[in-house]
């Protein structure tokens, strides 16, 4: 019993220490925010890495997401709902939910992990201390470009994911469900609201912030050599994934009023 309570106490302390640490890092980030365009090369490097280099993976994931969404929807619709609504259902699901969340989870695994591993290694090899000694604020130099790039690039990746997933769904609809491309696309267009798109992209920006910010925090607070870097990387992915799903629910309840 005593061990259980001690464990609980330690977990609670760790949790509040992390909340406090995230808050402090957030404050330091806000303070250097005006200098975001001071070093454009830092930002473009990160945007290239996070956005452009993630694109092939996102395209691959999106094709299959769209395809399976179309196939499963068709299976549910069979005999109950006219197939001209297939495009509507699949399109909405992709734009509002599937593309932002799956893109975010994939990017959390790819980019969030690599941010935590890179900054974690820089921490344990004293490279972050070296920046401090050179009077270069590591929050401005390392965290700011990554977080801003996450907020910008995730929505852009999601636009590609939307497009590719709908094309994947279209291919399945035409070749495997026997719905003409015209019928499918009319279905997508019929109930397309700009507000859905805005909601999906807003989510994406929030997810982009979560992934990069959590990755940076985990990297910055790394200690204990190679094992510590491994722990931080794992935590960056797990914490981002959980926060993505929780914030997805919160944003959904705020943006879609019944």
């Amino acid at each position: 019993m005593a061990i259980f309570i001690r464990g609980l106490g330690r977990a609670a302390l760790d949790f509040f220490a992390d909340v406090g640490g995230l808050f402090l890092l957030g404050m330091r980030l806000l303070r250097v925010l005006p200098r975001v365009f001071g070093s454009p090369r830092l930002l473009t490097t990160q945007m290239l890495y996070m956005g452009v280099n993630s694109l092939p993976l996102i395209v691959l994931v999106s094709v299959f997401t769209g395809s399976v969404a179309a196939w499963q929807a068709a299976y549910q619709f069979e005999g109950f709902v006219p197939m001209r609504y297939l495009g509507t259902a699949v399109g909405k699901a992709i734009i509002i939910e599937l593309a932002p969340v799956l893109t975010a989870l994939v990017v959390a695994g790819r980019v969030g992990a690599s941010i935590a591993a890179e900054l974690g290694t820089m921490r344990v090899t004293e490279q972050i201390d070296a920046l401090e000694v050179m009077a270069i604020d590591p929050v401005r130099y390392l965290v700011l470009p990554r977080v801003i790039s996450g907020i910008i690039m995730l929505p852009i990746l999601v636009i590609f994911a939307d497009l590719v997933a709908i094309l994947g769904a279209l291919a399945v609809a035409v070749n495997m469900v026997n719905v003409s491309s015209e019928t499918f696309l009319n279905g997508v267009k019929a109930f397309f609201y700009v507000s859905d798109m805005v909601a999906g992209l807003t989510k994406a920006a929030i997810f982009g912030f979560i992934i990069s910010f959590i990755g940076c925090y985990q990297g910055f607070t790394t200690s204990g050599g190679a094992a510590g870097v491994g722990q931080s990387t794992m935590r960056a992915v797990v914490v981002s994934a959980v926060l993505i799903l929780i914030s997805d629910f919160i944003v959904a309840t705020l943006m879609f009023r019944l």
């Binding site: 004293e126 490279q127 070296a130 009077a135 604020d137």
Partner: peptide
């Protein structure tokens, strides 16, 4: 303040144990 501290640090150089070069 952090600005003053950075000002002081500019007058310092440090050789780290494992060099700490930006790899």
């Amino acid at each position: 303040s952090s600005r003053e501290l950075y000002g002081v640090r500019l007058r310092f150089g440090m050789l780290f144990q494992n060099a700490a070069l930006f790899d």
